[in-house]
Design a protein around this nucleic acid. Sequence first.
DNA 1: CTCAGTGTTCAGTG
DNA 2: TCACTGAACACTGA
Length: 277
Amino acid sequence: MPELPEVERGRRLAESAAAGRRIERVECAADAIVYAGASPAEWEALRGRRVLAACRWGKQLWFDLDAPPHPLFHFGMSGGFRAPGDNPLKLASGPVHRPEEWPPRYWKVRLHFEDGGELVMTDARRLGRLLLRAAPREEPPVSRLGFDPLLALPSPRRFAELLGARSVVIKSLLLDQGFAAGVGNWIADEILYQAGIDPRRRARDLDDREAKRLRTVLRRVVEKAVSVDAESRRYPKGWLFHRRWGKRAESKTARGDAIRHIEIGGRTTAWVPAVQR
DNA sequence: CTCAGTGTTCAGTG
DNA sequence: TCACTGAACACTGA
């Protein structure tokens, strides 16, 4: 469930399925990669703990428990939370989840609660990670993150300063989690499109007007996506999101402008030359 | 069979 | 330190 809106959706699911409940049993899948940070034996420490809250910064998601260690989740490219009876999101690059199947395919950890409820993390591609932290906010990876656009968007002035300090290409800067935590490939392309900025421009070359516009659009896109619970079919019709996939040469925006696909910083970048300068 | 894909990290270069 | 590249990780679905 990779970018900020999808992770926030996961946080909300966790809030309703786990917050206030005591963990009765922890089941770990046999997966040395996803458990590279902390072994299943260490996860046993969660048994008997109560979940106080589900927290998020950028794409990192963790639980505040009544005692450490606190579990910290990263969904990678294809991870997410599931609860019995939920309706799973379909990701552009994710597996097909069958709602009726339980436990879901690719489950990595199952948290069983005292009331019989359950919360599961799934991850088909195994690029996600499960960590345990004494103080999640104070330690890496969370401590290394930049601002969260939903929780702590910098002032227009500060945002422009941050851009002015970097010579890197703007698309790459937006993907840097130490700059804007939670922005991923489609959000970066979406906001550059909506702000009318060529993704190949250098960050420090944007003027104050462009910086201001980019910041406003970043907030607008993230707030909108979160407000519809990351269900992409509810994103506004005009968004590039709906038309950026597939790398077809004939791709066009809702307005009829041609969409080009190039590579920037190793990531596919969809952009609209007629609109982005 | 091949390859792209909502991500991160690390090694190496300049 | 910064900017950038390439590779690695891993696996599904088109």
